[in-house]
C-alpha cells in the first residue's frame, strides 16, 4: 500500500456518482447553487475518469511493473523538490530548504534524473511543502469548496497554490523556454504520465472508497476538507484554536434525548 496522501488522492480527477445502487440519481434539488454545480462537475470528472483516465491507467499498469512505476513516481517526486525549496524559504525553514535543494541536486544527478531516491539513503528525507501551506501559514483564507474540471476538489487558495507549484516546476520552465514543438509535446506527455501513474498507483484505494460509499461526492468532499484542517493549526492567528486537534469534535450523546450533541 502506498501512502494514502488523501490530499493528493482526492485532488485527482475523481468525481461523485451521487447515484443509488440501481443507477438512479439522488434527488439533490434542495441544495445550494454552488453545491449543485459541485455535484455536476464531480459527475463530469467521474465520467471522464471512468471512460478515459481509468482505462488508460489500467493499460499503463498492464505494460509496466511495480519497479517501473516506482521509478516514474520517484522522477515526478524529484520535480516537486524546487517547489518545496521555495516554500521552505518562504516559511523561514532554512534547514528544510537546504535539504530540499540538496535532494533535488543529488537525485537529479546520482539518482539518474530523480528515478532513484539516493538522498533518502543518506538521511535527507523528503518533506513535502506547498504554496497552499505557505499561504495557510500567513493566514490567507481558504475560501469555499469548489470542484474544478479535471483537477477535482479545490478551494480558491489551493488553486492559487497549484499555479505556484506549476510555476516552480522544472517541467514548466522546459515548456516555456523553447520554441521546439517536440519539447512541448514531451512536457505535455510527461504531465499526462504523472497523472496516469498516480491514478494507477491508487487504483484499489479509490475503488474501495467508492464501493463502501453511498454518496461518493460527500465522502470525497468530507475527507478532503478534513485533511485540509491540518493547515488551520499552522496559522499564527489561530493559536487558541490550535490547542484542540481538528478531529476532537464533541463525541458524546445525551442518553435521555437519544441524540448526539452537534
Amino acid at each position: 500500500m502506498k501512502k494514502t496522501h488523501l490530499t493528493l488522492l482526492f485532488a485527482i480527477f475523481l468525481a461523485s456518482c451521487a447515484t443509488n445502487p440501481d443507477g438512479s440519481k439522488l434527488d439533490t434539488s434542495n441544495e445550494t447553487t454552488l453545491e449543485a454545480y459541485n455535484r455536476a462537475m464531480f459527475n463530469f470528472n467521474y465520467q471522464l475518469d471512468k471512460k478515459v483516465i481509468y482505462p488508460v491507467a489500467k493499460g499503463y499498469k498492464k505494460v509496466t511493473n511495480q519497479f517501473v512505476r516506482d521509478r516514474v513516481t520517484s522522477l515526478f517526486n524529484n520535480l516537486d523538490e524546487p517547489s518545496y525549496f521555495v516554500n521552505d524559504l518562504l516559511q523561514g525553514e532554512i534547514k528544510e530548504s537546504g535539504i530540499s535543494i540538496s535532494r533535488f541536486l543529488i537525485n537529479s544527478t546520482l539518482g539518474l534524473l530523480g528515478t532513484f531516491d539516493v538522498a533518502s539513503g543518506w538521511g535527507l528525507e523528503r518533506k513535502k511543502n506547498s504554496f497552499d501551506e505557505t499561504m495557510a501559514k500567513y493566514c490567507v483564507p481558504d475560501g469555499p469548496f469548489v470542484v474544478m474540471p479535471v483537477l477535482g476538489p479545490s478551494t480558491p487558495r489551493s488553486l492559487v497554490g497549484l499555479a505556484g507549484e506549476a510555476y516552480t516546476s522544472p517541467l514548466f520552465w522546459a515548456f516555456i523556454d523553447t520554441d521546439d514543438g517536440w519539447v512541448d509535446v514531451g512536457v505535455a506527455g510527461a504531465a499526462a504520465l504523472k497523472y496516469v501513474n498516480l491514478r494507477a498507483e491508487n487504483e484499489f484505494l479509490l475503488q474501495s472508497l467508492e464501493e463502501g460509499s453511498v454518496d461518493y461526492y460527500t465522502t470525497i468532499k468530507s475527507s478532503w476538507l478534513q485533511n485540509r484542517q491540518k493547515y488551520q493549526s499552522i496559522c499564527s492567528d489561530n493559536s487558541e484554536e490550535n490547542a484542540t486537534a481538528s478531529y476532537d469534535f464533541d463525541f458524546g450523546y445525551d442518553e435521555y434525548n437519544d441524540e448526539f450533541e452537534e
Binding site: 439522488l26 453511498v214 454518496d215 478531529y247
Partner: peptide, 27 residues
C-alpha cells in the same frame, strides 16, 4: 474504539456527513 483518524480524516465524521447527506436527498 469509537473512531479512527487517518491523516486527519475521521472515519466517523466522514460516515456521518455521507449518511446524513444521503438521507436528506433520499425520498
Amino acid at each position: 474504539v469509537v473512531d479512527i483518524i487517518i491523516e486527519n480524516v475521521s472515519l466517523a465524521i466522514t460516515a456521518r456527513n455521507e449518511y446524513t447527506a444521503f438521507i436528506k436527498n433520499s425520498p
